[in-house]
Amino acid sequence: MRLTRFLVSAPALAAPLTLLVAGCVAPPSAPAPRPAPAPRPAPVPPAEPAQPAAVEWQYRPATPGNWTYRADPAGPVALFGESASAPRLTLRCDRATRRISLGRAGGGQGAITVRTSYGASSWPAVIAGTQVPQLTAVRGASDAVLDQLAYSRGRFALEVQGQETLIVPAWAEISRVIEECRG
């Protein structure tokens, strides 16, 4: 009977013993040491402020002023500026030679670069005028570049080294001087 009691109670004892034996398992090993963090790179110094992109001449504001047409015995003249008495730009026809001169007030040196919606061209120029110096370029009245001035999309630009760029409207006075000089 003793043996029977033992066999009957043995499974009841086996469960707690199993838990005790399972608790005797070695504790988990300590976690592996972490590698030292990589050194941080030195901070990048802030970049210099970006220079604003150069605005193309078509998108710059127009130079203040208006065109004025004047009939002259030697040939028609178109003047651009805030007043006709002090023009910043002169387009003059010499009927005798059938040549058109483009004069920019203020002097300068080298050439006048003319930019139209058709492209850019360089006009060789010289200083002319005694009272008010002008950098002057001369073209034949039949020169196709003059048509580019007259038919440029609303405006054209004149650049001279050392002076501000003139952004000038392409008004009818230009066409009138060119056509009368050709005619």
Rank of each mutant, 00 (worst) to 15 (best):
V126R: 15
L20A: 13
D143N: 13
T63N: 03
Q109N: 09
P169S: 10
L102G: 02
D143F: 08
P73W: 07
R40I: 01
P46F: 03
S121N: 12
T97F: 14
Q161R: 15
R40S: 07
S29R: 14
V132W: 03
M1W: 11
A38H: 06
I174M: 03
P43M: 11
Q161D: 13
Q58A: 13
G110S: 09
P28A: 14
Q161N: 13
M1C: 05
P39L: 08
A86T: 12
P64W: 06
S121G: 07
L19W: 03
N66D: 09
L20G: 02
T97R: 12
E48C: 04
R95M: 08
L20I: 15
P169Y: 01
T63E: 03
L89W: 13
E48F: 09
A14S: 03
I100Q: 03
G103A: 15
P46W: 04
R139A: 12
S9F: 15
P27H: 01
L146G: 02
W67K: 02
V145N: 09
A144E: 11
R115A: 14
V21G: 06
S85L: 10
A71G: 07
L89M: 13
A157S: 15
W57A: 07
V160S: 09
A125M: 04
P133F: 03
A172V: 05
R34W: 11
S175L: 11
Q131M: 10
I127T: 14
D147W: 06
A22C: 02
V168S: 04
I112V: 15
G110V: 15
R2Q: 09
P31R: 11
V8P: 04
R182W: 05
Q161W: 09
P169Q: 05
L91I: 14
A144M: 10
S122E: 15
E48A: 15
C24T: 15
L20D: 00
R5I: 11
D94P: 00
T4C: 08
A10T: 15
S101R: 11
E180P: 05
A84W: 01
G119C: 04
S122K: 13
W123C: 00
E164K: 10
Y69Q: 02
